[in-house]
Design a protein around this nucleic acid. Structure first.
Lengths: 232, 232
DNA sequence: GTCTATATCGGGATAGAC
DNA sequence: GTCTATCCCGATATAGAC
């Protein structure tokens, strides 16, 4: 009985901290980070502000904790595509299909922390750690985009020693950083899945002019889907 | 003498209001909008907070005034490319050269109000007018990008009735909205002119795969310049 | 761990003198 | 038009009881 109680207390501690982070993240996404106060988070959790400060020393430590969550997620998903591109070379899948999957995962991870992408420079200005981390993440994204572009182009007979077309990598990285905000501007009402899907297609479309052959068929399917989704 | 005095007072009024807007804009750009208080602006102008409130009813009205400045500028520069594309058809210039000039002007105008582009959703959340206006501006940019893309592609024999390649217009609009923030992330130390120049080339590069012929030569020059600028 | 109460601070905004 | 003084409020943060 005593042991059980001890376990429960410990798991409660962990669970409370997690619940705080989760609720904070959702509020940030919904209301905009600057408009959410520590008390707002506490209220949403039916919890006193004092109690919240027991777990996290104010919004600052919440932000740092949330950011390292996102960082872990993205490093894990983006990292594999760069460090071990061969590992992903499943013979059952085309490079295009693998890219499609990777980009979908990354955009979905970003979606959970979208508040970070809506006002990046404000948060970067206030938290040097986030500043450094965000820049690192962009570099990581850039490397991943480069890997994807090379994989796609090589699969179409592009000479791997050649420079990729000018601006291609930056175009992809730019879109992989700001797509969520941009699409939200154009289609404020659309559901998240639609936004992610459009983003993936947008990303892949940058390589389209350089593709021909088998992958082109897959891409045609994508574009057809895209067209269907945009119209209504 | 009395008339002169009256004129001076009036021009002082105008000048003070202008000076406030100008200083506020520069502070916003330098420190980040959320980190600049009304007092900060007053201090920078060697002026009391009370006096500032005489001219503008707080940060709110400053923001609205600054935004309509930007809006006027962009509507004027972007508008002509859409409403009267023929007017710009100076026989001495290629469509590529005209596009280059237009995009340079637009990015420079944005640069003066870059704080708006660094944390757009925060400002949009707080000011409904800015929300509506910003979305309108994005639509306007999109229309201008479409006009540019059509002009470039048609000059290369592209069938005007055909749909432009999927994602091309959105790629350009995305870049024309977020380029300044993105390049700042990658090259924090670079001067503004370099950032603008790189942005223009990035924008034009989206149309590059579909170009061949005379304009391609001009574009080659651009890319050479681009390469020179990125290396050091 | 959780609560209530309270202290503190900074920015927004106004009043009234000059 | 401009200044000084002051008020107000909301958000952060802490103290101490339960």
């Amino acid at each position: 009985m005593r042991a059980a109680r001890g376990n429960r207390d410990f798991s409660d501690l962990v669970k409370t901290a997690e619940r705080i982070l989760d609720t904070a993240r959702q509020l940030f996404n919904a209301e905009g980070e600057r408009n959410v106060t520590a008390s707002d988070i506490a209220v949403e959790l039916d919890m006193s502000p004092g109690n919240l400060y027991y777990h996290f020393k104010g919004k600052d430590s919440i932000h740092l904790a949330l950011f390292s969550q996102l960082q872990r997620n993205l490093v894990s998903s983006l990292g594999t595509s760069i460090t071990s591109p061969d590992l992903l070379a499943d013979p059952d899948e085309t490079p295009l299909q693998r890219s499609w999957l990777l980009l979908t995962v990354v955009l979905e991870q970003m979606l959970d922390y979208r508040y970070l992408y809506e006002n990046p420079s404000d948060l970067m200005h206030r938290y040097p750690e986030i500043d450094r981390g965000f820049r690192r993440l962009v570099k990581l994204k850039r490397a991943a985009c480069e890997a994807i572009a090379y994989a796609l182009l090589e699969s179409e007979g592009f000479d791997p020693r050649q420079q990729p077309p000018g601006g291609l990598i930056d175009a992809m990285t730019l879109a992989l950083t700001y797509w969520l905000s941009y699409d939200q501007l154009i289609h404020p009402e659309d559901r998240n899945e639609v936004i992610v899907h459009r983003g993936v297609l947008q990303l892949l479309s940058f390589c389209a002019p350089y593709l021909g052959g088998e992958s082109a068929a897959f891409y045609q399917d994508c574009e057809r889907l895209y067209g269907l989704m945009v119209k209504p």
